[in-house]
């Protein structure tokens, strides 16, 4: 048997976020989502600094809704230590109202399991009471209402 030893790699990075990410995070602190408008009129959320198609520098940020549609999802029945929720939950790509692209976050279905999840369902952000300008200022998304599920 080879000798083994525990080893921890820890980086305490404090990142400069720049104007675009900074505005998005400031928006989260202020309980709203901001997207980036491209020259072709698409609204990308989360906002990139450059147009993914042309590379053009982007700067026009617009508010989008804090509810939207699940475009795809996966179900975690046994959360890992680092996961944002420590109960069974879904990862989801959520296309917010007014946005043309979906962002990654988690969905807490409350009581019940993955039978509560479906592609196309509507979800709404649950904001944390204390927000610091971080993607986890959104505690999770929640099903908007049982009737709102659309396919």
């Amino acid at each position: 048997m080879a000798l083994t030893a525990p080893y921890v790699l820890e980086y305490t990075y404090r990142r400069s976020v720049g104007p675009v990410v900074g505005q998005f995070l400031t928006g989260l602190r202020d309980q709203k989502f901001l997207g980036m408008k491209t020259s072709s009129g698409r609204i990308l959320v989360p906002p990139p600094e450059n147009d993914p198609e042309t590379g053009e520098t982007l700067s026009e940020m617009v508010a989008v809704g804090d509810a939207g549609v699940v475009t795809t999802w996966s179900w975690v029945s046994a959360p890992r230590k680092n996961h944002p929720l420590q109960k069974p939950f879904a990862w989801a790509l959520v296309k917010l109202d007014g946005a043309d692209t979906a962002m990654l976050h988690v969905v807490d279905v409350g009581e019940g399991g993955m039978e509560k999840m479906s592609t196309g369902m509507r979800v709404r952000a649950r904001w944390k009471a204390e927000r610091i300008g971080h993607v986890t200022d959104v505690a999770c998304f929640e099903p908007e209402s049982p009737q709102a599920v659309t396919r």
Binding site: V17, W91, M103, L104
Partner: peptide, 16 residues
């Protein structure tokens, strides 16, 4: 900035 702070592991992303 937007993704890693949520710690989506490689299996969860492949599952999406």
């Amino acid at each position: 900035y937007y993704v890693a702070p949520l710690w989506p592991d490689s299996i969860s992303l492949a599952a999406l």
